[in-house]
Amino acid sequence: MPKLETRRVEVKNFQRPDETRMFEGKGRAEVITLAGQQVGCGTFEPGWRWSNNVKPIAGTELCEFSHLSYCLSGRIRILMSDGTQEEIGPGDVAAIPPGHDAEVVGDEACVLLDFGEFGDYAKRT
């Protein structure tokens, strides 16, 4: 586990994120930095799909970031490059390796907390 870069308690709130990244009209990621680590709260609207809404930002065929996520609400399907799929819903914790697409399932927004490689995810260069 990475050692946190802090000597004091840090508290932040997603109501006032350090940064907001938009997903081509279908959601957003609020990002906060604590102890040198970035944490994201992604809101993925119904109809969101990584290959449609983040691929133009990332410039890669698939998402090449790993994610360590906790689902607060909604559902999302992860589609791996090897053809396997997994669906994530409220209360699920998931480790998602690089090399995937993803899509919201149903008509409710999916909200995920992400403690993985979130530093440059959906970040415009």
Score class of each variant (00 low, 15 high):
residue 107 D to L: 03
residue 25 G to I: 04
residue 103 E to N: 01
residue 40 G to Q: 08
residue 78 I to T: 10
residue 102 A to F: 08
residue 56 P to E: 09
residue 20 T to G: 00
residue 36 G to I: 09
residue 81 S to F: 03
residue 24 E to H: 12
residue 111 V to T: 12
residue 67 H to R: 06
residue 57 I to R: 03
residue 29 A to G: 14
residue 124 R to T: 13
residue 71 C to L: 05
residue 9 V to F: 06
residue 125 T to H: 07
residue 2 P to S: 11
residue 86 E to G: 13
residue 40 G to A: 14
residue 93 V to P: 05
residue 4 L to Q: 05
residue 75 R to F: 03
residue 22 M to R: 13
residue 112 L to T: 07
residue 71 C to A: 13
residue 28 R to H: 09
residue 70 Y to G: 06
residue 59 G to M: 03
residue 109 A to P: 13
residue 72 L to P: 00
residue 65 F to L: 01
residue 91 G to A: 14
residue 17 P to S: 05
residue 40 G to N: 12
residue 32 I to H: 08
residue 20 T to Y: 01
residue 12 K to H: 07
residue 90 P to K: 15
residue 63 C to Y: 02
residue 85 Q to R: 14
residue 7 R to A: 09
residue 7 R to P: 00
residue 35 A to K: 03
residue 123 K to S: 10
residue 84 T to K: 14
residue 7 R to G: 11
residue 32 I to G: 05
residue 93 V to A: 13
residue 104 V to F: 03
residue 96 I to S: 09
residue 106 G to S: 06
residue 105 V to S: 02
residue 52 N to D: 14
residue 13 N to C: 07
residue 14 F to H: 01
residue 60 T to K: 12
residue 26 K to Y: 13
residue 67 H to F: 07
residue 34 L to C: 10
residue 62 L to H: 06
residue 83 G to N: 07
residue 122 A to N: 04
residue 90 P to Y: 13
residue 79 L to Y: 01
residue 51 S to I: 06
residue 33 T to Y: 00
residue 45 E to W: 06
residue 81 S to E: 15
residue 121 Y to L: 11
residue 7 R to M: 03
residue 118 F to I: 14
residue 77 R to I: 04
residue 10 E to V: 11
residue 118 F to Q: 09
residue 50 W to G: 01
residue 88 I to K: 11
residue 93 V to C: 15
residue 60 T to R: 10
residue 5 E to F: 03
residue 74 G to D: 04
residue 74 G to I: 04
residue 96 I to R: 09
residue 73 S to R: 13
residue 41 C to F: 06
residue 40 G to T: 13
residue 59 G to K: 04
residue 34 L to S: 04
residue 60 T to C: 07
residue 34 L to E: 01
residue 29 A to Q: 11
residue 58 A to M: 10
residue 113 L to S: 11
residue 112 L to Q: 04
residue 109 A to Y: 00
residue 48 W to A: 03
residue 35 A to V: 05
residue 8 R to T: 13
residue 29 A to L: 12
residue 75 R to A: 14
residue 87 E to W: 10
residue 7 R to L: 12
residue 31 V to E: 06
residue 99 G to M: 08
residue 49 R to K: 14
residue 83 G to K: 08
residue 92 D to S: 15
residue 65 F to D: 09
residue 48 W to Q: 02
residue 4 L to I: 08
residue 114 D to T: 06
residue 53 N to D: 12
residue 65 F to C: 02
residue 19 E to N: 04
residue 17 P to W: 08
residue 50 W to K: 01
residue 86 E to T: 15
residue 104 V to I: 12
residue 45 E to V: 10
residue 38 Q to D: 13
residue 41 C to R: 15
residue 110 C to P: 01
residue 51 S to N: 04
residue 97 P to Y: 08
residue 6 T to E: 11
residue 84 T to Y: 08
residue 68 L to A: 10
residue 8 R to K: 15
residue 53 N to F: 01
residue 41 C to Q: 15
residue 81 S to N: 15
residue 115 F to C: 11
residue 61 E to M: 11
residue 28 R to E: 14
residue 69 S to C: 13
residue 96 I to V: 15
residue 105 V to H: 06
residue 67 H to G: 01
residue 122 A to Y: 00
residue 109 A to W: 00
residue 19 E to P: 02
residue 8 R to F: 02
residue 101 D to K: 09
residue 91 G to P: 08
residue 105 V to K: 10
residue 119 G to M: 07
residue 90 P to H: 09
residue 27 G to V: 04
residue 117 E to Y: 00
residue 45 E to C: 08
residue 47 G to H: 10
residue 33 T to I: 12
residue 82 D to G: 05
residue 20 T to S: 07
